[in-house]
Simulated scan of single mutants.
Amino acid sequence: MADVHARLAELGIEIPPVVPPVAAYVPAVQTGSHVYVSGQLPMVNGALAATGLVGAEVTAEQAKDLARRCGINILAAVEALVGLSRVVRVVKIVGFVASAPGFTGQPGVINGASELFGEVFGKAGQHARSAVGVPALPLNAPVEIEAIVEVS
């Protein structure tokens, strides 16, 4: 795979420090050739970028941008644990969208992260995924995304 750090620079994406856990877990764990990344919230500089339900206080387009931020925080967790240069492929992501009653656009929201991984890793960023609507998320976050990444 081409140098992922050069690709990130091309895209103008800075990898932030890993987001500290908000409870009793670690940001990511490696077992064998896989890294399991805990659910990442759209944190920027230690604070949520937005709060509320998608389809009410948060628009679907805003939520898509927040999902991208979750994806960047996933990259930060992988970088901190093993280094992004070891990524072979993004295997799966699971996205949770705090949804107002009647909101059914969860797949479009989670595209924010899916598209990011495609931009960064190309074909190796294509993954299986689930996009799930939920009534609430930790800290009143609109979006949370977890990932499984294969590494060398």
Rank of each mutant, 00 (worst) to 15 (best):
H5D: 08
H5C: 03
A6Y: 09
L8E: 09
E10K: 01
E10I: 00
P17R: 09
V18W: 07
P21R: 02
V22S: 15
A28H: 03
G32M: 11
H34A: 13
Y36D: 12
S38G: 06
L41P: 12
L41Q: 12
M43V: 10
V44L: 15
V44G: 07
N45C: 00
G52I: 00
E57V: 03
V58K: 03
A60E: 11
E61F: 05
Q62D: 09
Q62I: 01
A63T: 11
K64L: 11
K64V: 14
L66T: 15
A67P: 08
L75Q: 05
A76I: 02
V78W: 00
V78C: 00
E79D: 14
A80K: 08
A80F: 01
S85T: 02
R86I: 00
R86A: 06
V87R: 03
V88G: 06
V88P: 04
R89C: 11
F103L: 15
G108N: 13
V109A: 09
N111S: 08
G112L: 02
G112A: 05
L116R: 02
V120Q: 07
V120I: 09
K123H: 10
A124R: 12
G125I: 01
G125S: 05
H127N: 15
H127A: 11
H127P: 14
R129L: 15
V132Y: 05
V132I: 09
V132E: 09
V134C: 01
L137G: 05
P138W: 02
L139Y: 09
A141N: 08
E144R: 14
E144G: 11
E146A: 14
E146R: 09
E146D: 07
A147H: 04
A147W: 06
A147C: 10
E150V: 03
V151A: 01
